[in-house]
Amino acid sequence: MEKWLGYALLSMFFAGFTSVIAKVGLSGISGDLGLSVRTLFVSVFVLGFAAIVVPLTDWTTLNRHNLIWLGASALTTTLSWIFYYKALKIGDVASVALIDKGSVVVAIALAALLLKETISLRVMLGALLIVAGLLVIAKKS
């Protein structure tokens, strides 16, 4: 198995746990407070991770371009998390998590448009199946 695939599968596994654990953690508090507390923990964990695995010399390679685009990514992550937690507080985990994963379709489209990545028929079919799944789960009848 390719290394990136292993990492992606681990990400999928932990992301699945994240939604359920977060829903339990939101019991009795607002989604906004829950997100804030969670984000503080994430910051501590990521900074600890960076202190252990990122060599000091790597920090000198950061440039303005990196900071601008990573900052923009942080902004979109923040917005995604804000709305995810608002939805998670009042919706069921299965529906909220699946709709959130519709971001895959957005990522595929943006990768094609902005990064000029080639979208194969296989990827396009997979994206259409994701959209179909979203429609099935989002339908409330």
Rank of each mutant, 00 (worst) to 15 (best):
V123P: 01
L9V: 10
L47N: 07
N63R: 04
L79G: 02
K86Y: 12
L56C: 11
W59A: 12
T76E: 08
L88C: 01
S95I: 14
G102R: 03
A15M: 12
I29C: 10
H65P: 02
F14T: 07
K116W: 13
T78D: 00
T39I: 10
H65Q: 05
V104M: 14
G6Y: 14
W4Y: 14
K89I: 00
A97V: 08
S19D: 12
G71P: 02
F17N: 08
V24T: 14
I99E: 01
V44G: 01
L113P: 05
S11Y: 15
L121G: 10
S95Q: 12
A72Q: 10
L115T: 00
K89Q: 09
K116R: 15
A72W: 11
A8H: 05
V46C: 09
D58H: 14
G71T: 00
G102V: 10
I137A: 05
G34Y: 09
G16S: 09
G28E: 11
L79E: 11
A22L: 07
G34A: 08
K89R: 14
G48I: 10
T18L: 09
L121N: 09
W69P: 09
E117Y: 10
G91L: 10
K86A: 08
A97L: 04
F41P: 00
V93H: 00
F45H: 06
N63E: 13
V37Q: 12
S103Y: 07
L40Q: 05
L33C: 02
V136P: 00
M124E: 15
I90V: 13
I68A: 03
V54W: 06
A127I: 02
V105N: 03
L26Y: 13
K101H: 15
L125A: 09
T76G: 05
S43L: 15
A87S: 11
G91I: 08
I130M: 08
G71E: 11
L134K: 00
D100L: 09
L134F: 08
L88H: 04
L113W: 03
I99S: 00
F13S: 08
K86H: 07
D32Y: 14
A112F: 11
V105M: 09
V24L: 13
